[in-house]
Simulated assay, not measured.
Amino acid sequence: MLNPMDLTIAIPVRNEERNLASCLQAIGSDLARQVVVIDSGSTDATAAVAHTHGAECIQFHWDGRFPKKRNWYLRHHTPTTGWVLFLDADEILTPAVKREITAALMSTSHQGFLLSFTNYFLGRRLRGGYPLRKLALFRVGEVEYERIEEDHWSHCDMEVHEHPIVPGSIGLIRSRIDHRDLRGIDSYMAKHNQYAAWEAHRLFSHRHQPHTTASWKPHQRLKYRLITSPWGGLAFFLGSFFLMGGWRDGGTGFAFCLFKAGYFTQIACRLRELEQLQTCRQQGAKGA
């Protein structure tokens, strides 16, 4: 396996006692030099689970502004290894993924790697739908997540959809990480409700500060062009369920695609509401 001196695995968490043990067990002791759990004041047994599995646990207290959890960790607890891999507590490294990461990091000129994921929904592994990939493995000291000034309009203390800014080339780990949240449908819905509010505020901010979109990649521009319209949810559903094979998962696949379509529709509606509120304020200011 990979020389333990090469890699740190960082896991940002809050109240993840149900997921964290499986995540840490899958990492094992032969992949990374260090495993760090970055906790946001969990009120459950998250910290105890981290210590039981030999992971270092550090506490993060967000003040509502930049930096959030991942960038804060990179700046204030900079890993001493050459590479860092950010995992969520509901992401399980499979043996195939660990082998591929090992082989990739032994000899590469890339600055970062996209990771591939398999989704689970209602306890079932999904075969269809849009492929899930994200950039979460990169060289220490060369990459940070994009900076978004929030000034307390969000309750998300961790970078969720902020993208790492990579100055060089990006590789791809094709073996899939299992993305399996054990906290149930209530947690799933609450999480995406929070994410939708964040995305709407982010888009609202970008509309009034166009220069902030300069670093967006083509796929980001397409995504945000779609979800600024209520029709974006329908477009996602049709593409995911019919074109990308969501139908292969039967009723579970239909429900998953429907939930995701609702999420994108919610973003568009929240954005429209923010625009309407601003218009009302401007009209009120003029009439005063």
Rank of each mutant, 00 (worst) to 15 (best):
G246P: 06
I185M: 09
F241Y: 14
D186N: 12
V160E: 09
R176I: 04
S215P: 03
H201Q: 08
T212L: 04
F204P: 00
D186I: 11
C257G: 12
H192Y: 06
A190I: 04
H201W: 10
P218T: 01
R248G: 14
A190N: 07
V160D: 07
C257Y: 02
C156L: 13
S205E: 05
G246D: 10
P167A: 11
H179A: 04
L226Q: 12
Y188M: 13
D178N: 13
D186Y: 09
T213P: 00
Y224C: 08
F236H: 15
F254V: 10
P164G: 01
R221H: 07
L222I: 13
H163E: 04
G233A: 08
W198T: 01
G184M: 04
H219Y: 14
H161S: 12
G251Q: 13
M244A: 15
A214K: 12
I173W: 01
C257K: 00
C257V: 10
A214F: 05
F264I: 08
H206N: 11
T213F: 02
R248I: 13
N193S: 15
I170D: 01
R202G: 02
E162T: 04
M158N: 04
C156S: 09
I185K: 09
H155P: 05
I267Y: 03
C269D: 08
S229P: 03
L172V: 10
G250C: 05
G232C: 13
K217I: 05
M244C: 15
R202N: 07
